[in-house]
Simulated assay, not measured.
Amino acid sequence: MAMKVKELAGLVGISVRTLHYYDEIGLLSPEETTDSGYRLYSNENLEMLQQILFFRELDMPLKEIKQMISSTSFDKQEALRQHQKMLLEKRSQLDKLINTVDKSIKHMKGEIQMTDKEKFEGFDFSQNPYEEEARERWGDKAVDESKAKVAGMSKDAQKIVSDIYIKLASIRNASPESEEAQKAIKEWYDCLNNNFGTYSPEAFKGLGQMYVDDQRFTKNIDQYGDGLAKFMCDAMGHFADANKN
């Protein structure tokens, strides 16, 4: 039985505007549009919407979802198996984070002692939650090159990234202009250029500003320690000003 857009939105729990937008970009078009302008969605539309929302739950950009489901080789059952696999991996990471929170509470109460490494178990920065926005700002080529570098990173390189964040978090109460802070932030500058693309000092400073201007970045970075985003922004700004060509 065909469903109108308002009925479908109510069933799924998303907005009518979202369904309209999916139609506008050709991601999910209704099976039929009546002479009166009503969008009517079929059972097949519902199945495809489920696929789309599974992909969105895994933070996949709409552009990539559209390319995938529009492919002649797209297999719904295989896609569901992949969804299941990735969701299980996501659940495993969340379990680790919950365990880290539990241990942190006990640590604060003095019931146990946590090592610095244990304080950050479960965090995963291999996936970029801002990829879609980055593509809009800097284009597909720059993002694809960056992702290729990330995919090719060795475990040693990934450990370097984690160690830099931990080091910066440990000195975040020092002056961002101090020798210690500038030495650590240079490690971050070199790490970005070696693994994620090409950053001029000016671009590096702009990135640091985004850490405080965009609350999503701030929240993500401050998981390592309250105030870390602001500290990194100030340290990156000072570093960039001191290293202008």
Rank of each mutant, 00 (worst) to 15 (best):
V5P: 13
L8G: 10
A9W: 06
V12G: 12
V12N: 13
I14W: 11
S15L: 05
V16R: 14
R17K: 15
H20L: 13
I25N: 11
G26F: 05
L28H: 07
E31N: 10
S36W: 09
Y41C: 10
S42K: 14
E44H: 09
E44D: 14
L46R: 14
E47G: 12
L49W: 02
Q50N: 14
F54P: 10
F55L: 09
E57Y: 02
E57M: 05
L58C: 01
D59V: 00
D59S: 08
I65P: 01
I65T: 00
Q67H: 07
S70M: 07
T72V: 10
T72I: 05
F74D: 02
D75G: 02
D75I: 01
M86W: 05
E89D: 08
R91F: 00
R91C: 03
I98M: 10
N99I: 06
V101G: 07
V101A: 12
K103G: 10
S104T: 15
M108R: 14
G110R: 06
G110E: 03
E111L: 03
M114L: 15
D116V: 13
E118K: 04
K119I: 05
K119F: 04
E121G: 02
E121W: 08
F123D: 01
F125R: 00
S126N: 08
Y130E: 04
E133F: 07
A134C: 04
G139I: 05
D140V: 12
E145A: 11
E145C: 07
V150I: 10
S154I: 02
S154H: 00
A157Y: 01
Q158H: 06
I160S: 02
I164V: 01
I164H: 00
A169E: 08
A169Q: 09
S175M: 14
E177M: 11
S178D: 11
E179C: 12
K183E: 13
D190K: 11
N194G: 11
N194D: 06
N195M: 00
G197C: 03
T198V: 12
P201I: 01
P201V: 02
K205F: 03
Q209G: 12
Q209D: 14
Q209F: 08
D214L: 02
K219M: 02
N220E: 10
Y224M: 11
G225H: 08
G227W: 08
C233F: 09
D234Y: 08
H238K: 15
N243R: 09
N243M: 02
N245Q: 13
